[in-house]
């Protein structure tokens, strides 16, 4: 479903080029749940951004469902994102001017689907927010906002879900409930999940764990194997 080939990202600094990612080769199959772990600054979020087509690599390529992202321009990547990809972010990234329902309706509407309202309300009910449809993000708690974000991510019927530290802004209990919901829906919708986290316990919920150190993949193993060892 996702393949990275010699993926490298460098950025110019006052002291010369800084390499954030170096020759990352990955192959993620459809329906797989993959955790990308590593310390702060190890390049996790950069890798997520490149895989999701939010950023362009300095060299190498990302192939998303058979589409080479390097071959696509920004606009084509945006269209591809709209068709294939859903996101859940640490800071929720809801549009503050829209209600919970409108936030969830948005990706469905952008696809031109006339049934956006029904689908969005069903999803909100599914994440337990049936009584909070018309609340704005600033009227919701952090956990509720993240549930809206999860509902939105699944609303577009995405085949790949990128989650960047989804519990980073939540307390432990809330975070656990949100993660349970995320995995539940992921299973239900058979989505490929790429989860970026520095939380080892959360990573263990995924089938595969990729560890980054200083922009390089130092370990890429099945969680089952790790647990077994």
């Amino acid at each position: 479903m996702i393949r990275t080939e010699k993926l490298t990202k460098t950025v110019p600094t006052s002291e010369g080029l800084l390499t954030i990612l170096k020759n990352v080769d990955l192959d993620i199959a459809e329906g797989e749940a993959v955790a990308i772990v590593g310390e702060s600054g190890s390049g996790k979020s950069t890798l997520l951004g490149l895989m999701a087509g939010l950023d362009s690599p300095s060299s190498g390529d990302v192939v998303l469902d058979g589409n080479s992202l390097v071959a696509l321009d920004k606009e084509e990547r945006a269209i591809l994102r709209g068709q294939l990809v859903g996101f859940v972010f640490q800071s929720f990234q809801l549009l503050p001017s829209l209600t919970a329902l409108e936030n969830v309706m948005l990706p469905i509407e952008l696809k031109g689907d006339p049934d956006a309202r029904n689908k969005a309300s069903n999803l909100l009910s599914r994440v337990g927010l049936e009584k909070r449809w018309h609340h704005y993000p600033n009227q919701l708690s952090g956990g509720e906002q993240q549930r809206v974000a999860i509902a939105r991510a699944f609303a577009s019927e995405a085949r790949i879900l990128f989650a960047d530290e989804p519990t980073g802004n939540l307390d432990t209990a809330t975070g656990a409930r949100v993660i349970d919901l995320l995995f539940e829906l992921n299973k239900e919708y058979a989505t490929t999940l790429i989860l970026v986290t520095h939380d080892e316990r959360l990573a263990e919920k995924c089938g595969r764990k990729i560890k980054l150190v200083a922009g390089e993949v130092v370990s890429d193993r099945k969680v089952e194997e790790i647990t077994h060892e």
Binding site: E75, A78, I79, G82, F87, L95, L106, L110
Partner: peptide, 8 residues
């Protein structure tokens, strides 16, 4: 955000 949701 809109761009991550697929807006061109």
């Amino acid at each position: 955000i809109l761009k991550t949701l697929g807006c061109t």
